[in-house]
Write a protein that binds this DNA or RNA. Structure first.
Lengths: 214, 214
DNA sequence: GGATAATTCAAACAAACGTTTGAAACAGGC
DNA sequence: GCCTGTTTCAAACGTTTGTTTGAATTATCC
C-alpha cells in the first residue's frame, strides 16, 4: 500500500492536473494529497514543469510503443490489413488503459487536455513522443488508401486525433455540450469510434476543381 | 482607431488567453497590452472570470445564432437537406469567422481550447450557450439518418465537435502532432472537414450483437 | 460654468505561488 | 559503535497574483 514518495507524487499530480489543469494545480495541493512534504517535488523532480513531464513520460512511452507494436504485428501478420484494424491499433491501447481503472482514466483525460492546453516546452516533449508513431500510421494508411493524396491523409489523421482527444477529455467529467451520459461499455464506445473514423478515412478524396476565381 | 477601453480589454484578453491559456495570463499582461489601467478590468467587468465570460459572450452568441439561422433556412427552404448541408450550417459560420482575420482566428482557437481547459463556471456558461444549438442539430440529423439510434447520433456529434475543436485549437499555432503546415485555403479545409465528417455520420450503425459473455 | 456622474489612475492589500535552505531523520556498510 | 549518503521536514524566501481603495481626471447634462 505504501508506495514510493515519487510514485505517490506522480499519482497525485496526475489526478489533480487531469481534474483542474496544470496551472490551476499548486504544488501544495499535490504534496498534501500525496502526503509528502512540499519540498519533495523539487527533491525528486527538480521543478513543477519536470514533474508534469514525468507524469506523461511514465505512461506515454509504453502506450506509444504498444501502438507501434500492434501496427507492426498487423503488417507482418500476413492477414488482411483493414482501415478498421489500423485504427484499432492506434485507439485500443489508450482505451484499454482507460478501462483499466481510475488512474488510466485520469491519464487519458490528461492526454486529451495536453493536446491543446500544453505549454511550449511540454508540447515539444509530446511532439517528440508522438511524431514517429503518427508518421508510421500515416505511411500505412497511405498504402491502404492510395487514392488519397498525402495532404488529405494528414488532415484526416488530425480529425481522428481530435475526435479521440475530445472523447478522452470530455468523459467522464461533466460533459460540456451534452447532458451527462454514462460512459457505457468502453468497448461499445470503441466500436463507435472506429466505425465513425473508418468511414471518414475511407471517404473519397475532395476533387480539386479547376481553380475557380473566388 | 481608438476604441473603447472595455473593447480594448476584450481584444487583449482574447489574444492573450488564446495564446497562453487562461490561468497563465495575468491581468497585468492584459491591461498593459490594452494600454489600460490595472483596475480597469474590475471596473468594467468585475473580475477576471467575468472578463473571460465576456470574451466568449461577445462572439459566441452571434456565432450560434447564425448556425441556427442557417439550419432553419435549410429546412424551410424546400430543397434537399443533406448531411453535408447540415454540417456546413454548423461549421461554416465558425470557419468563416476564422478566415475573417486575426481576431476571428484567435477566438476560434480559444473556443477549441475552452472545450477542455475550461473551469467549472465557464463550462456551465458554455454549455448553456451550446445546448440549444446542439440539440437542434441533433434533431435534424436524427430525421436525416433514421437508421441510427439517438445514442449513436449523440456520440457521433461528440466526435464531430472534437475534430472541429482540435482543428481550431491546433491551427495556426505550432502543430503538436505534425510538422507545421500552412493552413492553405480555409475553404479547402472546410471541404475536407465536411467530407470526412459526413462520411462518419453516414456510416451504418454498430450492430448490437447478442450480449456475448466477455 | 458649476454640479453630477463616469472613468482613470497610482498605490497598496493580503494571499498564494514556486523555489530554496539548512538542519533533522533515516538508511545501509563496515 | 560511527560514518556516508539519501530522504524528509518546517520555515522562510522573493515574486506574482487578483482585488481593493480613494483621490484625480474626464465627460455629461442643465
Amino acid at each position: 500500500m505504501e508506495e514510493d514518495t515519487s510514485q505517490r507524487l506522480l499519482d497525485a499530480a496526475e489526478a489533480l492536473f487531469a481534474e483542474q489543469g496544470f496551472a490551476e494545480t499548486s504544488l501544495r495541493a499535490i504534496t498534501t494529497q500525496a502526503k509528502a512534504n512540499l519540498a519533495a517535488v523539487h527533491y525528486h523532480f527538480g521543478s513543477k514543469d519536470e514533474l508534469l513531464r514525468a507524469v506523461f513520460a511514465r505512461r506515454l512511452k509504453a502506450l506509444n510503443a504498444e501502438r507501434l507494436a500492434r501496427l507492426m504485428a498487423l503488417e507482418t501478420g500476413g492477414g488482411l490489413v483493414t482501415v478498421e484494424a489500423v485504427l484499432a491499433a492506434f485507439i485500443e491501447p489508450s482505451l484499454r488503459l482507460r478501462r483499466a481503472g481510475v488512474q488510466g482514466e485520469r491519464f487519458t483525460r490528461l492526454l486529451g487536455l495536453a493536446q491543446v492546453e500544453a505549454s511550449k516546452a511540454l508540447r515539444d516533449f509530446l511532439r517528440d513522443q508522438y511524431t514517429p508513431v503518427v508518421e508510421r500510421f500515416q505511411r500505412t494508411l497511405s498504402r491502404l488508401l492510395p487514392e488519397l493524396p498525402p495532404e488529405e491523409i494528414h488532415w484526416r489523421l488530425c480529425f481522428t486525433v481530435g475526435a479521440l482527444s475530445f472523447t478522452y477529455a470530455g468523459v467522464p467529467s461533466p460533459r460540456l455540450l451534452f447532458a451527462n451520459r454514462e460512459f457505457g461499455s468502453g468497448l461499445w464506445l470503441q466500436r463507435q469510434l472506429i466505425r465513425f473514423l473508418a468511414a471518414g478515412l475511407r471517404a473519397p478524396p475532395v476533387e480539386e476543381k479547376a481553380e475557380e476565381v473566388p
